[in-house]
Design a protein around this nucleic acid. Sequence first.
DNA 1: CAAGTTGATAACTTATTGGTTGAATACTCC
DNA 2: GGAGTATTCAACCAATAAGTTATCAACTTG
Lengths: 114, 114
Amino acid sequence: MTDHLSTTLSALADPTRRGILARLSLGEATVSELAEPYDMSMAAVSKHLKVLEKAGLISRGKEAQWRPCRLEAAPMAEVADWVENYRRFWDESLDRLGDYLAELQKGDPGGSRN
Amino acid sequence: MTDHLSTTLSALADPTRRGILARLSLGEATVSELAEPYDMSMAAVSKHLKVLEKAGLISRGKEAQWRPCRLEAAPMAEVADWVENYRRFWDESLDRLGDYLAELQKGDPGGSRN
DNA sequence: CAAGTTGATAACTTATTGGTTGAATACTCC
DNA sequence: GGAGTATTCAACCAATAAGTTATCAACTTG
């Protein structure tokens, strides 16, 4: 799981972390502010932040005893980019084409299998 | 991790599984065909397929002793949708706005914090 | 029916994840 | 410098994930 995209996706695959990002989309926040909505220890939130940081999805400053977090959405561009390759597969009109191609394939079994 | 989006994202957070989806974007394939490029047992691939199926990213048929897989990209729409909310944060021109807003926030500390 | 092929399942191992609690660190303010 | 606040770190635990091998089930074909 060393590749960048996998790291990003797995960081995003947690509702707490996505919630944190949503909060950060409204502006910088400290760890305690980010932890407040969640029923878990600060340490747990701190770990989530480390995951997000490792994925490059947030950055952190140092302001006195606070370590304010800010959103760094750049890695999400990679996700958006990747998923866009599949848009045609869920786009309604092109589903028709998909069905058509599948039908073609059925008519020529093995032709695409070897 | 019971929510749909988390399930989808974590299914996608694995290069083998994304590779399988890429292959399926070219058309249906059997399990052995999907396993072929990978240096792992069929059982392992079978497990990956189960993860993808549980996330609704593939569906499977029954054709004699084969269980052909086909791409079902619908859940990706949710991912695309979600990530689009953040586009403005990585879009270059709007990064300027982001910096500007951050600057505003600095000038009014606490104003957005409470 | 026996043999070969395709695939899934079970049991097991190892590593990772997500959480906990209890210090430790770093800073501010009186 | 001591008290309080903010955050991290370390050690631990339970659950999950990703892989293995061995076995089983379903189907085709000689």
